Computed example of a mutant assay.
Amino acid sequence: MVAPDRQPTLADVARWAGVSVATASRVLNRSAPVNEDTAARVERAVADLGYVRQRSPHLARGHSGAVSVVVFDDMLRYQRDSFYSRLLVGAERAALRAGRELVVSTALRNAPRDTLLRYLCGGHVDGVVMVGMPSDGAPAQVVREAGVPVMCVGRPAVAGLSYVDANNTGGARQAVSYLISSGRQAIATIAGPSNMIVADDRLAGYRSALAEGGLAPDGIVCRGDFTVDSGEHAMLRLLDRYPALDAVFAASDLMAFGALRGLRRLGVRVPDQVAVVGFDDGTLARHTMPRLTTVRQPVEEMGARAVAELLVADESCRATVLKTSLVLRESA
């Protein structure tokens, strides 16, 4: 392996030592126990590369005038999902109030990000809001190591990172409790991907409501990926396996829309035969047939709070969880 011909970063140290960025960060910060052999490899990499921990240049010369939002998703989904546009509306308003411009980037979750990280750590922005961050937390670790503040939208999988989120567990619990109180007994869920914290939190709320309502707590689960097509495919699979279903809680409005489309294809009446509830309350929810009962999360406020909290001169770890509410319409 060849040493970089520039100032080495934490990512370079991790690569040289053959460990994750999060592990390298834990060794250097002594924030969690790491076995001796791994720690020695990281320390040897630091010496070999001449790595020096330093604060971002912008901290020494005042603010740069910009805040970055990085969305870890592919460009097509970024353009199609109104969640992102609504989030950015709130973020931009907060940035303008603080006298900053908003710089928006997208990045695939599993793709190399060295160029993006060098930009974020190079003094070009006063802080970074990360949306849908990969579960290893590596991008946030690298940026924070450079002295640039980081705020996550959505509860991160790794500890020690500040975040703003909606009450995903509580919102899902309220939705499913409503279905139970309406007399529904065979309630399935179309959950999100198993590698996303938001999907796990909403699944936990679904199961909590089932247990509180005296139903089998494991429930009936089929997973999608927060897209319309995945919701439709999941709905068709569920009805094939469980024809007696009388309700479905979908972990996003897009998947709920897909579920409605699948039910329509099969001639199943909503809500007479199967009730459908989503999660988000974007514009789509008011234009489905029938109109979608869903959990409203304050997406614009999440974006605004993320930027506002990011620019607070405080390095403590902060968690802001915003309330959700159930919006009743004709689908349930």
Rank of each mutant, 00 (worst) to 15 (best):
R109D: 08
G137Y: 00
T106Q: 05
D126L: 09
T106E: 12
A138M: 12
R113K: 15
P139S: 13
P134N: 13
T115A: 15
P134Q: 14
P134H: 12
T115C: 08
A140Y: 03
A111K: 13
D126A: 10
A140G: 14
A140H: 09
S135H: 08
V131T: 10
P112W: 13
T115G: 12
V129N: 03
G122E: 06
V128H: 02
D126G: 07
L117C: 06
G122W: 11
L108G: 12
R113P: 01
V125R: 11
L108Q: 14
C121I: 12
P112A: 01
Y119M: 10
V125N: 08
L108Y: 13
H124G: 06
V125T: 13
A111W: 10
G137F: 01
R118N: 15
L120E: 00
L108H: 13
Y119P: 00
L117E: 02
R113M: 15
G132C: 07
T106M: 10
P134Y: 10
L108K: 11
H124W: 13
A140F: 06
L116S: 01
L120R: 00
M130K: 05
V131P: 02
V131N: 03
M133V: 09
P134A: 09
H124R: 15
L116G: 02
P112S: 02
G123W: 03
Y119R: 12
V125G: 04
A138V: 01
M133N: 09
D114L: 07
D136K: 04
T106S: 04
G122T: 07
M133L: 11
P134M: 09
L116K: 05
L117V: 11
M130Q: 10
G132I: 11
V131K: 00
D136T: 11
G123D: 05
A111S: 14
P139E: 10
Q141C: 14
G127D: 00
G122P: 10
A140C: 06
R118E: 14
R118D: 15
V129G: 00
D114Y: 05
V129A: 04
G132T: 07
L116E: 03
T115M: 15
Q141K: 10
G127A: 03
R118I: 06
L116F: 09
A138N: 02
D126V: 11
T115Y: 09
L108D: 14
